[in-house]
């Protein structure tokens, strides 16, 4: 079936499932320089693979949002955009690390009012290089208490050796799923590419039950977690 045929099915009332993908990007001052440049490059490089993964799952419509945080948090891409139509615009860095505020903002959209229709568990990817400097616990609690937040698949990518792994582990909140670490630009590109494509394939696969998707991703993540490149950050 072609995409037009699928659209036709939609017109008949058979709605495609939506997979909301939310990228939460650390844009604090410590990300200035090569870190934010590498993140921008990684996202731009991951888009083609993300589109390809989405195309392989025709029954699923992948919608992308991007949330940035530094001093406070705001939407870099606030209205969900289909991955096919997504054009990446570079993030800039500056300010403190208000991750708690970012999680509160993310929690505010993880509900049926903002995500109507048939929904797959949303995928939230957090990318950070440091430690939160605001109320992280409060923000995380709000995220996990939201209707779709507690069901979400959460992935964390730590940039550099100064990232607080305990905080990122708390965000993931899964005993088998570990933080992905990136110590140079190439590793960050690889981690971002995997984090933006593997969940799309796994979560939207008809052969994967809801709870098993995370476990399967966790097993895949183990092969991604080992840093093998040069230690730059």
């Amino acid at each position: 079936m072609t995409t037009n045929d699928l659209n036709g099915l939609s017109a008949l009332g058979i709605a495609r499932r939506q997979l909301h993908f939310i990228l939460i990007a650390d844009c604090s001052g410590s990300m200035s320089g090569d870190k934010i440049a590498s993140l921008n490059h990684a996202m731009a490089a991951a888009l083609p693979a993300m589109r390809e993964a989405a195309a392989d799952n025709a029954e699923t419509q992948v919608m992308v949002r991007v949330l940035r945080f530094g001093d406070g948090a705001d939407w870099h891409i606030g209205t969900p955009v289909p991955v096919d139509a997504l054009q990446w615009s570079d993030l800039t860095a500056g300010g403190e690390t208000h991750l708690g505020t970012a999680l509160l903002l993310a929690a505010s959209v993880l509900n049926p009012e903002n995500m109507p229709g048939r929904q797959l568990p949303p995928v939230i990817v957090l990318v950070s290089d440091g430690q939160p400097t605001d109320d992280f616990a409060g923000g995380l609690a709000a995220l996990l208490a939201s209707p779709y937040g507690k069901k979400s698949v959460r992935i964390a990518v730590a940039i550099g050796s100064d990232a607080d792994l305990d905080v990122l582990d708390a965000f993931i909140a899964h005993p088998e799923f570990k933080v992905l670490q990136a110590h140079n630009a190439q590793e960050l590109t690889n981690r971002i590419r995997w984090a933006t494509t593997a969940p799309v394939k796994t979560v939207s696969s008809p052969l994967t039950i809801e709870g098993g998707a995370v476990a399967e991703l966790a097993r895949e993540a183990v092969s991604q977690a080992d840093a093998t490149g040069e230690l730059v950050w």
């Binding site: 001052g29 410590s30 990300m31 320089g33 300010g95 403190e96 440091g130 400097t133 100064d162 607080d164």
Partner: peptide, 11 residues
């Protein structure tokens, strides 16, 4: 936390 704040303000 203080070191993280310093890294944000003086990267």
């Amino acid at each position: 936390r203080f070191a993280a704040l310093l890294a944000d303000h003086a990267p």
